[in-house]
Design a protein around this nucleic acid. Structure first.
Length: 306
RNA sequence: CCAGGGGUGGCGGAGUGGCCAAUCGCACCUGACUGUAAAUCAGGCGGGCAUGUUCCCUGCGCAGGUUCGAAUCCUGCCCCCUGGA
């Protein structure tokens, strides 16, 4: 006698590499199916980082509500865990209006944290600790930190790349502040939603072309000016500015590279990023890959039972 | 025509007798990723296969030569750059 479990809420998830046309597709889908859009983009959350992150146009946003865009200033700290909370809240809100949430974005970890209900270890970043570890990293080398991790939490050391400073620092952070090994803290809970995942897949040549074109457009639209304004207000070395387009322009403004080189670098780094995204999303076997937006509409319609 | 420098893997660029299938960077391919994720990293990268720290083939402009052994030395040729006529 099992009581019928309440159906999980349905959400539509749209993924794909940068510049593949996710936002446009999301807007079209949202327009057709009474939806609101929730962004899963780790840089569009920042206010003032508009041109370089290719945020949807204001006119679009006016037509269809977008969530989790422009929610933080660049110098504010933001993390996956925070994203999870914010996103869940946004989803709830949209569902409460009897609308379908459409989660769109290129930040694979953000998507995964929602779709797979990742349980992020309850250890907040401790910046003092991190700073201390960074110092040790500089003075004693990465291997020293890794050895330390092996001592404190051999299991974690086994999982973490021994050459990845950022992840070693975080693993140490966790082990130094909790009793449980990191390895036992990487869990995912029960799925919260019934997700329809649609991925945009373009032939590489075409993707590359779109990336290059977009880079040119972004520059033309005033990225340099945007960055100039940003670094007037914020330190130039904050994590938010470790974003494609921004870091390169900052270096340009500091006279380290020419404009031509900068443009080329932005294109190159965007392309690399896209490849990393493709690698990430490839692992998710539930994604239905499409090469044409039209197909997405039909898939959504079926899935929604309309 | 003379003098000097140089031609190395897709590109840039090391190497100047054996430790060289050839440092490294870029590009390219594959992958990792649980509170920085547009971040941060790893592996591969001449070809072949029986996939090997000890295999085979091809290989450092071309053709020869010296040597047990040559990308590295010698000879000739071709090409490129710089300066001089």
């Amino acid at each position: 006698m099992s009581t019928p479990r309440p159906r999980k809420p349905k959400i539509i998830v749209i993924v794909g590499p940068t510049a593949s046309g996710k936002s446009d597709l999301a807007i079209k889908i949202a327009g057709k199916f009474n939806s609101e859009i929730i962004s899963a983009d780790s840089r569009q959350i920042y206010r003032g980082m508009d041109i370089g992150t290719a945020k949807p146009a204001k006119t679009e946003i006016r037509k269809i509500p977008h969530h989790l865009i422009d929610i933080k200033n660049p110098d504010e700290n933001y993390t996956v865990a925070q994203y999870k909370k914010d996103c869940l809240k946004a989803i709830k809100m949209v569902l409460a209006k009897n609308k379908i949430p459409v989660l769109v974005g290129g930040t694979g970890l953000y998507i995964k944290t929602i779709a797979d209900n990742l349980e992020i270890p309850e250890v907040k970043p401790d910046f003092q600790l991190r700073e201390k570890l960074e110092k040790e990293l500089k003075s004693k080398g990465l291997d020293y930190l890794y050895q330390k991790l092996i001592e404190l939490d051999p299991e974690a050391a086994y999982i973490i790349d021994s050459k990845n400073p950022r992840r070693i620092v975080r693993a140490l952070e966790i082990t130094l502040k909790t009793e449980k090994p990191f390895s036992q803290q990487r869990k995912s809970g029960k799925k919260l939603f019934n997700c329809l995942k649609i991925g945009i897949s373009l032939p590489k040549e075409k993707l590359r072309e779109k990336i290059n074109k977009r880079a040119d457009k972004i520059l033309k639209n005033g990225l340099i000016k945007e960055v100039k304004n940003l670094i007037k207000k914020y330190p130039f070395d904050i994590p938010a500015f470790d974003a494609i387009g921004y870091r390169e322009i900052i270096n340009y403004l500091q006279g380290k590279v020419s404009l031509d080189e900068t443009t080329a670098l932005i294109k190159k780094n965007t392309w690399r990023y896209a490849k990393r995204q493709i690698t990430w999303f490839k692992k998710d076997k539930k994604i239905i890959w499409i090469d044409n937006p039209q197909k997405a509409f039909a898939i959504c319609r079926d899935w929604l039972g309309l």
